[in-house]
Design a protein around this nucleic acid. Sequence first.
DNA 1: CCCGACGATACCCGCCGGGTATCGCCGGCC
DNA 2: GGCCGGCGATACCCGGCGGGTATCGTCGGG
Lengths: 276, 276
Amino acid sequence: METRELRYYVAVAEELHFGRAAERLGIAQPPLSRAIQRLERRLGVTLLERSSRAVSLTEAGRVLLAEGRAALEAVEAADRRTRRAGAGFVLAAKAGASGEFLAKLLDAYAAEPGAVEVEVLLCGIAEQERLLRDGRADVALLHLPFDSIVGLDTEELRTETQVVVLPGGHPLSTRPSLTLAEVTALPGLPMPRWPGPGGVYPPGPGPEVHNHTQLLQLISLGRAAALLPESCRAQLGHDLVAVPVSDAPTVTTVIAWPPQSRSRAVAGLVRAATRL
Amino acid sequence: METRELRYYVAVAEELHFGRAAERLGIAQPPLSRAIQRLERRLGVTLLERSSRAVSLTEAGRVLLAEGRAALEAVEAADRRTRRAGAGFVLAAKAGASGEFLAKLLDAYAAEPGAVEVEVLLCGIAEQERLLRDGRADVALLHLPFDSIVGLDTEELRTETQVVVLPGGHPLSTRPSLTLAEVTALPGLPMPRWPGPGGVYPPGPGPEVHNHTQLLQLISLGRAAALLPESCRAQLGHDLVAVPVSDAPTVTTVIAWPPQSRSRAVAGLVRAATRL
DNA sequence: CCCGACGATACCCGCCGGGTATCGCCGGCC
DNA sequence: GGCCGGCGATACCCGGCGGGTATCGTCGGG
């Protein structure tokens, strides 16, 4: 199976329409039809059910869509990582999270013998897994239990407690400590929803957020409150207050990388990180 | 990057010899040289250092070898899993391990509504990870802490203590219990060596084994002793004795599957397994 | 009942993957 | 030191496959 065939199939399976898929791929429709037919013939299974009005996936088609996407990501990762081989590597971190910690980590690594250039890729929440899988990043800082580490090698770096961030004048903002029960039931201050694995938002009340700036601004505006690791205190303006939450689960920062890419450079960064 | 190019490159990078690589690929040498040149040109990096006597990998070449192997495995997995879509799935288990447990699991799954055919692939030790990665298996029974679960989704099934298996007449075979210290220092009965992740054997004394039959026979012959999960008792002949080891680490059986293949069938098996 | 949307088919062209023959380079051996 | 042999690169040729345009066959809907 060639990657071109996979790309073609994934396009058709996503669009469920040969014409649109061909347009997306920048080719005409007939060669696309032929390519899919040949793919089906070679695999010995039917992938798509075509009526003259609609296209739908068979069971085999669903399997190939999932597996094919993963395979294409692996190929893209090989491509990107090879292109930048030797020219340093890319570290993905959530914009706004672990700011100080990240600075210390980069300093520590820079002091290592043989350190190469590190490009820091600040991304939204829940994007890191995909960045690592498709090769746009080589190593990432993740936070348990929020991020999924399935499919990655990891090393734990530090664990911290959580605080609730409230607008300055809020009645509870002067309390020395709160409980989860008090925090989740705040009248008029819903907890925002973060994207889960795959980038989909869970249903429920509360605004959808995808980065920290956005979140902090919503809190300033008095439209949300949020549970965050205590290290976020360093970034809070004077109009926000952090109150410890005694029974909130702890957050663990981990450094993660794809298991097959044991490059010298990434190993050095991991070593520097675990020594912090 | 097309998979054919990746296959070609991996062959050359492994052989470090264009002629032999071409032979292995079943093509002539000139087209192979051209393909690698074109790959290097398109990637914009040199992968191989050629002198007229030897071929060696550059840093980029090492990266592409590792990433390319992973990508090829993902493509092969997509191929195999698509071909057998709908026709059941494959469960990989170590030959000789978890015998009874496996039988119960298969029975429980067969009773599920919508159960499909399960092919059981009995393999050697440390082969399962690769079987899952390249698509020859869809789901596997692994044993912590021996097997690596990096890159897999898992669910814990049961935890058991370990026993030491000794030849029948051995002086220690009548003891009610032993300690790790006593077991590792058995005179004349070395612990065998198992392949670690990647199928390589750690250095040291003791015979190399890669399946349970072989191991049990070695013990019968009085040439080895082994630490095994207590459930192995069911398979011991009368010439072998199992003695509990009080301070040995416990073994956890887990069911594992590649994260992207959340097929209905595998989900059913996992559900049946966790209910056991 | 006809139209229009959509996938399949027919047919053509140019490039690329593969083959054979040969070159150029270099290390080793007589 | 010159010849040989091993090895990758180059030159050149062919066939098939990827891609394009034109058109057909089949439905569902107005």
